[in-house]
Amino acid sequence: MNLNKKDKVKDFFRKDGFYLALFLCLCVIATVAIVTTKKNNSLEENNTAQNEFTLNIDEQETSEAKKQNAERVEEDITNELVEAEEEESDLNVSSGTNTEVIFSNPINGVISRGYTYPKPQLMSDGTSRNIRGIDISAAIGSEINAAAVGEVKEVSSKVEEGNYVVIAHANGLYTKYTNLSNDIRVNVGDRVTEETVIGTVGNSSMIFTNDQFGEHVSIEVQDASGKDLDPTAYFTFKED
């Protein structure tokens, strides 16, 4: 009886043991596959999260950089506008300012005819003329500089004044240079300094001619409203 049981057990392991072992191996393989899959999924999730985190940081840094660049550009534009406004205000003569501007003699010479306005002066032909500036004796062709920093407001010609240039200055005053030659070297809108040659002495006035008054340039000074002022209060020319 015992021998039969042992034989049956041996037969079972010989016949069915193979399938049992195969089943156990499959179970082990399946378990390993499941564990490996879970680990891979976990790694992929971690990598995805890390990539998203990195992208978010990059986007934030890029946005911050763009913001800083935009702020710098805006600041530069603002500074340029302020500088332009300051430059414009320096030459604003519409209402006059209290800015102190010292005029330099625009040419070497002496006063050959003084300022008499509003008292008219009798001319050789019997007519009377207002002398609104001072005549500076100077040879034809002598260079004439601007009296101070300013902006050229007018370049033109009239019978009485001949060729002339008008310059606006930061203190609300205008200087006017008449009886110039055709060699005028500035244009309306030009910014000038005491170093700027605006033209040369000529003989273009048809009224105050060089034949009657000698070779000269006439210099006038006006305020912002166009009122004539005595140039000798602003220049240091000596009288002839």
Rank of each mutant, 00 (worst) to 15 (best):
L3K: 11
N4M: 07
K5V: 12
K6V: 14
D7F: 08
D7Q: 11
V9L: 15
V9M: 07
V9N: 09
F12N: 01
F13L: 13
R14H: 04
R14K: 11
G17I: 00
G17F: 00
A21Y: 04
A21G: 12
A21R: 09
L22Q: 00
L22E: 00
L22F: 00
F23G: 14
L26T: 12
V28H: 08
V28C: 10
T37A: 09
K38H: 10
N40H: 14
N41C: 03
L43E: 10
E44L: 09
N46A: 15
T48H: 07
N51R: 13
F53M: 05
I57K: 12
E59T: 04
Q60Y: 12
E61H: 07
S63T: 11
E64M: 10
K66F: 09
K66C: 05
R72E: 08
T78P: 04
V82R: 13
V82W: 10
A84R: 15
E86Y: 09
S89M: 06
D90W: 03
L91M: 10
L91K: 01
S94F: 14
T97L: 10
I102A: 13
N105H: 02
N105D: 12
V110C: 11
S112E: 02
S112C: 14
R113F: 15
R113G: 08
Y115A: 07
Y115N: 05
P118M: 03
M123I: 04
R129D: 03
R129L: 09
R129Y: 12
N130R: 09
N130S: 09
I131A: 11
I131K: 12
I131C: 09
I134F: 07
A138V: 00
A139W: 00
A147G: 06
A148N: 04
V149C: 06
S156L: 03
E160G: 05
E161F: 13
G162E: 01
N163P: 00
N171Y: 04
G172K: 01
G172A: 07
G172T: 03
L173S: 05
L173W: 02
K176S: 02
T178C: 13
S181I: 09
S181C: 02
S181Y: 01
D183F: 08
D183G: 03
I184N: 06
R191H: 11
T193I: 01
T196Y: 03
V197C: 03
V197I: 15
T200A: 14
G202R: 02
M206T: 07
M206Q: 15
T209W: 04
T209H: 08
D211P: 03
F213A: 08
G214S: 02
E215T: 03
I219N: 07
I219W: 08
D223K: 04
G226H: 08
K227S: 11
D228L: 15
D230I: 01
A233M: 07
F237I: 02
F237D: 00
K238Y: 01
K238H: 10
K238T: 12
